[in-house]
Design a protein around this nucleic acid. Structure first.
Length: 114
DNA sequence: GAGATGACGGGCT
DNA sequence: AAGCCCGCCATCT
């Protein structure tokens, strides 16, 4: 299409994550059809444009924790946003993925479709 | 075009 | 249990 860049697709997927739920970087990569591109997803999140209404705070690592490292404020903000959506942190800073993990799009072809 | 980056993931020590 | 290392991918400089 116009811009089949993964970045744009990543943002699109994140925007589909319902409020109160979260997804892992690796999962987003899988949804896009690139299992293993979790790193790229993280890179995209780092460059997530602000003011786009992208719920970037709903993206966490496979351990259910905030992976942000360079911006402690952003990390705390993410946690605050998640808690404000009803997400509960256990053990101090861990989210129960089996409870808040977004199952994914009902139509896998929505993103991985040709 | 090549090298370095990074908010990852899984495995091993 | 916690920390360290390697591999993966797309983007950036």
């Amino acid at each position: 299409m116009s811009e089949p860049s993964f970045y744009h697709q990543i943002y699109r997927v994140v925007c589909r994550v319902p409020r109160g739920q979260v997804v892992t970087y690796g999962q987003v990569a899988v949804i896009l059809g690139c299992p293993g591109a979790a790193r790229a997803v993280g890179y995209a999140m780092h460059r997530t444009p602000h003011g786009q209404g992208i719920p970037w705070h709903r993206v966490i690592n496979a351990r259910g924790r905030i992976s942000i490292k360079g911006d402690v404020y952003a990390a705390e903000a993410q946690r605050a946003l998640l808690e404000s959506e009803g997400v509960v942190f256990e053990d101090g800073d861990r989210v129960d993925l089996k409870k808040y993990r977004w199952p994914g799009p009902e139509d896998p072809f929505e993103f991985g479709g040709e």
